[in-house]
Lab assay of single mutants.
Amino acid sequence: MASDGVVVEIGKVTGSVGTTVEIPVYFRGVPSKGIANCDFVFRYDPNVLEIIGIDPGDIIVDPNPTKSFDTAIYPDRKIIVFLFAEDSGTGAYAITKDGVFAKIRATVKSSAPGYITFDEVGGFADNDLVEQKVSFIDGGVNVGNATPTKGATPTNTATPTK
């Protein structure tokens, strides 16, 4: 695992066909100046998982989280898009600690492993708008004895992609 920078880890949970599971997305290594904004994309298989919603985690402190935390689910493109932009203008609602960034709610549709993997990152910046190093650890849903650990090695991303 990367020793510096922010680590975004997609949790690994267990479920069975027809059940709804909650998959946490963790941030670790949050910089001392916090995270003022970030955007990134995960990939998944809508034939295996139906993403039914995404909720902000406990490290989102904006009293009205829909102003700073936004997501979009595109089953036709097989992606989930995340956007966080601190909304106070003063840094008061920045992410300042490690913990759960988001909770992905999904219904298991198939007995195949439900991988959720890193696809791309736009950027991560602290309260001074300084770009942060970030790496990703894939996860998803274990169905029966299947284990979604494909790509469990962190993917280092030093520069934003478009």
Rank of each mutant, 00 (worst) to 15 (best):
V130W: 09
Y93T: 14
V41A: 01
G91P: 14
C38Y: 01
I59Q: 13
P148N: 03
I52R: 07
T19P: 11
I60F: 14
S3A: 15
V13T: 06
A36V: 06
F118C: 07
E131N: 07
F136G: 13
M1T: 10
I80V: 04
N64M: 08
A112P: 07
E86S: 01
Y26F: 06
I116F: 04
I137K: 12
Y44D: 05
D138R: 10
V81G: 02
S68R: 14
S111K: 15
K12Y: 09
A72T: 00
V143D: 14
F27V: 05
V8M: 02
G91V: 03
V25E: 02
A85E: 00
A146R: 12
T66P: 09
S135R: 10
E131H: 02
K67Q: 12
T149P: 11
N142C: 11
D87I: 14
A94G: 13
G151C: 10
Y44H: 05
G5H: 05
T161D: 12
N127E: 03
N156P: 13
G122F: 00
E50L: 06
P63Y: 13
S3Y: 07
Y93F: 08
Q132R: 08
A146E: 13
A94F: 01
N142Q: 09
D126A: 02
R28T: 08
T14D: 13
G122L: 00
G122T: 00
S135K: 07
V7A: 10
I52T: 10
F84T: 02
G91A: 14
G123K: 00
T96Y: 10
T71V: 02
Y115V: 11
A125G: 03
G15T: 07
K12C: 05
D126R: 02
T155R: 09
G53K: 09
D62Q: 15
V130D: 03
I73G: 01
G89P: 04
G34C: 02
V25S: 08
V30K: 08
T147I: 12
I23Q: 12
N64Y: 12
E22M: 15
K109L: 08
S68F: 05
T153S: 11
I104C: 09
I95R: 02
A2S: 14
S3R: 08
V41H: 00
F82K: 01
K109R: 12
K103V: 08
F118K: 12
A85V: 14
G29S: 08
D45G: 13
